[in-house]
Write a protein that binds this DNA or RNA. Structure first.
Length: 559
RNA sequence: AACUCCAUGGUGUAACGGUAGCACAACAGAUUUUGGUUCUGUUUGUCAAGGUUCGAAUCCUUGUGGAGUUGCCA
């Protein structure tokens, strides 16, 4: 008798279990709190899967909350793309979409509350003076000369800040905590600053804006968030998060828990660097299929399910590690192997003529749509005298273990016939321009012949007469270096020069015409490819999502 | 050397004082009308030193290594 494996939970889910069984909470409410100042990337996907995943598992809910407290950086453009990306990933916030800016009124009220309690004050020092007064990692800070202002004076000054009497940076509101605190975040942090800027939602209603620290915990409390999950960089902010909840009349008591953010090798994840790639034209845009953005991944053809599986696999811990990109690719192959329909496509064509096949004859063969889903049946693939095969599938002078086509050698054409190569035709420069072959009529459908003859390889083909032309963009990892971030020098120096190869002359099986954008299919023996949005009626464009595992290529590399 | 956090094969992650397991990667083989898929097998690990204990990856101490933090960004 084997014990049914109990799926192990990460430390966050264990903490939630404890809070539920101890009666601390009756339910679970999480939130995903992006700042609308850029596009979501796969690192965000980890957080999205965590927060929305927990809500699903615990029968709770997950709020989508835009953390929009900095009007100079944020824009509605990003709000829309973020919503779209979350939906695509397969999650739903229902009616629970919020904006931190919706709480500006309440936060302002709470700031006044703090002032009245003698726990906040208006500081006239400029940014430089405040920085100097804060001390550093070794030395305590010193009190601001304005730290002991009277409550009435603070109230008045804060009111005048709000009414626009002062310019940007002239005054700030600070929490009055402890200038000698070992945690720098506790040394009288700025909680309100003056910014005369148009906010994407509140317009010019405000010219003072709350800082992140004065916004996040309170927003959580207002929404009755039970568990506020964030990345490790906010660990040092937790004392402040708790301090505000302790010192304000908040309606609930959320708990901040930090986990390690996602790091992937062979890519960069910071918004700044991704922006730089876009701005400097190293990629075609935020949704370039090489980008680790959700929109890029999607255009690349990675299924949302694979992203979710990947996030499940890497787990949640406090360890700051780097995940291998092959884990992601493996998840992608798993899903696509199961779901992607098979077709034949020749990326680098070489012409092949079957000399004993009648000039005008045409046939159609039945080919399996997806061996993983036999119930889908077969498709018809046209065959004729002149065909294309992959250049890599022929070698004039092959090494011993090369099983594919070579002079005098016989292979199977997938779902068609056995073919033997009789003659190699070259141009004046010695380039191979055509292969002349013969077929065996007794192998129709690719069957083994009655004489029991066997063949070592099966290769794909496309009938020249019926072929559909296409451009195929073969993508590889964006960086040649495993950690482009950490090495010395500019990360751009580590770009993989071969991250994109455009093949203009691909020949496709006709069934490949007319597929919808973003449909991902398997080009047999090559990999998974998806229809790009650049496709037009008469000009198909495919992106290579990920190649098939290729033990032959791997063996070659070793030699 | 202030504070906080982290440390299990090549990578990531389990084991909650009782046989160190899983996935990916790597390697070898079987099957195969995709050199794919599938299946089988193999290699590789508890940062170090002490302590508690019948028993320690797990608890304690010290050390070592790494990360984060000195925005009026989030």
């Amino acid at each position: 008798m084997s014990v049914p494996p109990t799926p192990s939970k990460d430390f966050i889910r264990e903490l939630i279990d404890e809070d539920l069984s101890s009666g601390k909470h009756d339910g679970t409410v999480t939130r995903f709190p992006p700042e609308p100042n850029g596009y979501l990337h796969i690192g965000h996907a980890k957080s999205i899967c965590l927060n929305f995943g927990i809500a699903e598992e615990y029968g709770g809910r997950c709020h989508l909350r835009f953390d929009d407290t900095n009007p100079t950086k944020e824009d509605v453009e990003y709000v829309d793309s973020i919503k779209e990306d979350i939906k695509w990933l397969g999650f739903d916030w229902g009616d629970h979409i919020y904006f931190a800016s919706d709480y500006f009124e309440k936060l302002h009220e709470w700031a006044i509350h703090l002032i009245e309690e003698g726990k906040a004050y208006v500081d006239d020092q400029n940014a430089e003076e405040i920085r100097k007064g804060r001390g550093d990692l070794q030395n305590p800070g010193v009190d601001s000369p304005y730290r002991d202002r009277l409550v009435e004076e603070n109230i008045d000054l804060f009111r005048r800040m709000k009414e626009g009497e002062f310019g940007d940076g002239e005054k700030v509101l600070r929490a009055r905590i402890d200038m000698a605190h070992p945690n720098l975040n506790m040394r009288d942090p700025v909680i309100y600053r003056i910014v005369h800027a148009e906010h994407h939602r509140t317009g010019d209603t405000w010219c003072i804006y709350p800082m992140y620290d004065f916004t996040h915990g309170q927003s959580d409390a207002l929404e009755y968030i039970t568990h506020s999950l964030c990345t490790l960089e906010f660990e040092n902010h937790r004392p402040l998060y708790d301090w505000f909840l302790d010192n304000l009349p908040v309606p609930s008591r959320p708990r901040q828990i930090e986990f390690g953010r996602l790091n992937l090798n062979y890519t960069v994840m910071s918004k700044r660097k991704l922006l730089q790639l876009v701005d400097e034209g190293m990629v075609s845009g935020w949704d370039d299929p090489r980008m680790p953005t959700i929109s890029g991944i999607r255009r690349r053809g990675y299924p949302a399910e694979a992203i979710r599986e990947f996030c499940k696999t890497i787990g949640i811990t406090k360890f700051k590690g780097t995940n291998d990109i092959s884990l992601l690719e493996s998840a992608v192959r798993d899903v696509l192997n199961r779901d992607a329909n098979r077709y034949m496509a020749v990326l680098n064509p070489i012409k092949l003529v079957i000399t004993n096949y009648p000039e005008d004859k045409e046939e159609e063969f039945d080919a399996v749509i997806n061996p993983e889903q036999p119930e889908l049946g077969t498709r018809k693939v046209p065959f004729s005298r002149e065909l294309y095969i992959e250049r890599d599938d022929f070698m004039e002078d092959p090494p011993k273990k090369f099983f594919r086509l070579a002079p005098g050698k016989e292979v199977r054409f997938r779902s068609a016939y056995f073919i033997r190569c009789d003659e190699v035709v070259k141009d004046d420069d010695g380039n191979i321009v055509e292969l002349r072959c013969t077929y065996d009529p007794e192998t129709r459908g690719g069957q083994n012949p009655p004489d029991g003859r066997k063949v070592k390889a099966t290769i794909h083909w496309v009938s020249a007469k019926h072929a559909v032309d296409a451009e195929v963009r073969v993508y590889d990892r964006l960086f040649a270096n495993e950690s482009p971030d950490s090495g010395e020098g500019n990360f751009l120096d580590h770009l993989n020069q071969d991250s994109l190869a455009v093949l203009e002359n691909a020949k496709l099986e006709p069934n490949l015409a007319g597929l919808e954008t973003e449909t991902t299919v398997q080009f047999e023996r090559l990999g998974y490819f998806c229809v790009d949005s650049d496709s037009e009626e008469d000009k198909l464009v495919f992106n290579r999502t990920v190649p098939l595992r290729d033990s032959w290529a791997k063996a070659q590399k070793k030699n």
